[in-house]
């Protein structure tokens, strides 16, 4: 919401996220509850999964802060990627991520998700997880100790409480870019079973990069994309999450 008084004079454009006082109070309550009730879906193909039982059970007890393991993506809030992802498992992660309901958060655990880790020279594993799905937090280390995992969970809880963890919206707003990255690995005919663009329209999360050259081949499945002309794309205003700069070699 803009606080610039000059902007509020004449025909100010109505911000889609601008809320009344009551709306903001309700949002605050909802964020407070969201931060204290996080259901975690573990994607345990990597070795990092071994650090989670101590984090969950009596030694460190994640339930103290309201976290519970959940077994299906529909119920979960956090997708915890525990270690390396091969190209084949990345496809499943993307499908799992798209089945989760927003607000949803992704945590990359271990060095593998950050820069390939000890599998940096493998032809089969991906190196940068945040090129394919938006990642809220990374935990560096090989392996990170349960203390580090807790530290990141607390950090994420703090950001959810303050309403800052909005990376999941980035997936809708820049779907074309994410789909392009996925297509580099899965082939140009790749399309997820979930209608992400349709969801972006439904929940008014269409950004300037939601549609593009990579999503063009999806349009034959969804004739309603041409209604997009009606919906005005939001101005580029990524205050919550600054664009991640990936340093190219």
């Amino acid at each position: 919401m803009s606080t610039d008084p000059n902007q509020a004079v004449a025909c100010r454009t109505v911000d889609a996220e601008e809320r009344s006082l009551l709306g903001r109070v309700l949002d605050r309550i909802a964020d407070h509850c969201r931060a204290r009730s996080l259901f975690v879906l573990h994607y345990c193909t990597g070795c990092g999964a071994i650090e989670l039982p101590p984090t969950m059970t009596s030694r460190f007890d994640l339930e103290r802060v309201g976290m519970q393991p959940m077994v299906t993506p529909r119920q979960a809030d956090i997708l915890l990627i525990t270690g390396y992802l091969s190209v084949k498992t990345l496809k499943r992660v993307v499908m799992t991520y798209e089945q989760m309901q927003g607000p949803k958060y992704v945590i990359g655990l271990g060095s593998c998700t950050i820069n390939g880790g000890m599998y940096w020279n493998s032809y089969a594993t991906i190196k940068l997880l945040d090129r394919y799905i938006p990642v809220d937090n990374y935990i560096a280390g090989c392996m990170p100790r349960p203390e580090a995992i807790q530290q990141v969970f607390l950090d994420l809880m703090g950001r959810i409480d303050r309403g800052e963890a909005q990376a999941w919206k980035d997936y809708y707003r820049r779907y074309d870019w994410y789909l392009g990255q996925q297509q580099q690995l899965f082939g140009t005919n790749w399309q997820a079973p979930t209608d992400v663009v349709g969801e972006a329209i439904r929940y008014r999360l269409v950004g300037e990069q939601t549609l593009g050259s990579h999503t063009a081949h999806l349009e034959r499945y969804a004739p309603y994309y041409d209604q997009l002309g009606i919906i005005r794309p939001e101005p580029a205003r990524m205050k919550a999450r600054p664009q991640l700069e990936v340093v190219s070699r």
């Binding site: 909802a30 969201r34 204290r36 009596s58 339930e63 927003g102």
Partner: peptide, 26 residues
């Protein structure tokens, strides 16, 4: 029984409010 501390007092309420305030639904 598992020798943990367990959830805080308002945990059931947090869960329900959180689930009802999800922003997307299927």
């Amino acid at each position: 029984i598992e020798r943990r501390i367990g959830p805080p007092l308002l945990q059931p309420l947090y869960d329900i409010v959180k689930l009802y305030s999800k922003k997307t639904q299927v």
